[in-house]
Design a protein around this nucleic acid. Structure first.
Length: 140
RNA sequence: GUGGAGGGCUGGACGGCCGCUUGGGUGGGUUCGCCCACCCGAGAGGAAAGUCCGGACUCGCUGAAGCAUUGGUGCCGGGUAACGCCCGGGCAGGGCAACCUGACGGAAAGCGCCACAGAAAUGAAACCGCCCCACUUUGGUGGGGUAAGGGUGAAACGGUGGGGUAAGAGCCCACCGGGGCACUGGAAACAGCGCUCGCAUGGCAAGCCCCACCAGGAGCAAUGCCUAAUAGGGACCGCGCGCCGGGCUGAUCCUUCGGGAUAUCGCGGCAGGGGCGCUUCACCCCGAGCGGUCCGGGUUGGCAGCUUGAGCCUGCGGGCAAUCGCAGGCCCAGAGGAAUGGUCGUCUAACCUUGGGGUAACCCAAGGGGGACAGAAUCCGGCUUAUAGGCCCUCCACGCGU
RNA sequence: CGGGGCGUGGCGCAGUCUGGUAGCGCACCUGUUUUGGGUACAGGGGGUCGUAGGUUCGAAUCCUGCCGCCCCGA
């Protein structure tokens, strides 16, 4: 099941990572395969009030840096609500993950009905930060 | 002033910080695929929605004509690329009116259905009746006439009035309704008018159907190209492997080197087979293989298609209008686990509370509160559905005043 | 993008084609049988037929528009 063509795909990411390391920021790569989402869902999960964080440390053979995905099912709402929820999740991921996340991990943020839209933005950032520390603290 | 009808527009505003996609320019890097930084611009809707119709576009899914099948449309005329859409008109129904609504062809082409009730539910018949005659034990019985009345039903074989009669009946008459014919107006639907026919001929076609008209199929995951990988596969079934020609050259064989053989391979032609449900014609493919079904394997990478279009704005002109023509100007989202934003602040409508004013609708002040439905996915024309609030125009009825 | 199916008492389904009475099983309630329970028997209650219109004298059924759910193909 080792996906050899994917090495070509993620080559630019691997190369770009050390270039930006001077800024101490990890670039975010978006998850695209359904299997990646399913594997992340089977791994660690931490509820954060307004959303749910799923995280998985990839095998050494799997390439790629820090990867992130977003899930908002139909339970969250109609298309407008879902897109808005995903945009808010994307913003807190952009704000927190480059600092608190680790390379070699997959993170999936799952939106929830009503709360992902209405929760205070600063609280959501703090929740994500706390959840990341909880995961990585348990790891070590 | 109150109540109502029709149409059009709009769909929160401004700013700070941090981001995303994309066009152009400059500079830099590059494995020449592209990547990075800065500057200047652009970046959701009236329904982007539902996916209900109609198109554009693409496809060696063969093309055209006719027929059949299936599906759709259905008063008339116009508009349009086209439509089941729009405009105008007619007719019918509703409303005092402005105006609204209408799947609005055909029921003497045929088939079918019309429960219950009722005598009878379609080309008739007669339950209670009414009338006449005969008989009579005066209670009725039998025969005949009749369809006005009663009763049933959603619907009962024209309606009302009069004449007429034993009682009645379009049996006769007037008016209304209906059929037929002619004329007039109109482009037509249709309307008007005249003559004529005393006139049994219900309803349902969103039951089958008939008539007229219109439609081939699949869909941007269409389709084309590039890179990587590879496969060049297997099983079963059906129909086939026919005829003719020319030969010494494209092979092959024989040879006395002049030439000969042509079964076989190849060549040309014809049958034949396949490519649209059928037929005909044309075209293409096969011609010794072809067609069908199934299984197995590979692929979800990139680019194009992809946004200049039945386009938008302004003006003039034709037309009652839908809309069309001409001239000038403009370029206006192109994502792809899917950009078009996140957050904070100020203001402004809905709404709520309190206080004041007013007969009332409402107005003023303060505080709170916080925007409706909803997110492009190839692109257009419609339809349908959802939608807080605001603005504008026209018209009608009633009441009051002049 | 395209195609198909479903919606009927609490649950699972008939009835829809061919219009006129909404029915079946389980569950529920009451009674009898039993010392009691179960079983069995008898009786009973309960349905805006997803929704809004239309056609018809009359609609779960026919037609149209919406709503929700499920499945399939590229």
């Amino acid at each position: 099941m080792a996906a050899s063509p994917k090495a070509e795909l993620d080559d630019t990411t691997l190369k770009a990572a050390p270039v930006d390391s001077a800024a101490a920021l990890l670039p975010l790569v978006v998850l695209q395969n359904r299997s990646d989402f399913l594997r992340a869902a089977r791994a660690k999960r931490v509820p954060c009030g307004a959303f749910l964080l799923q995280a998985r440390k990839r095998d050494e053979t799997e390439p790629g840096g820090l990867r992130v995905g977003f899930t908002c099912s139909k339970k969250v709402g109609n298309a407008v609500i879902r897109n808005r929820a995903k945009r808010r999740l994307r913003e807190i991921a952009r704000a927190e993950l480059p600092r608190a996340g680790l390379p070699g991990w997959d993170y999936v943020l799952v939106g929830r009905a009503d709360r992902t839209i209405s929760e205070d933005f600063a609280k959501m950032r703090a929740d994500l930060n706390r959840a990341l520390k909880k995961i990585h603290g348990a790891q070590t």
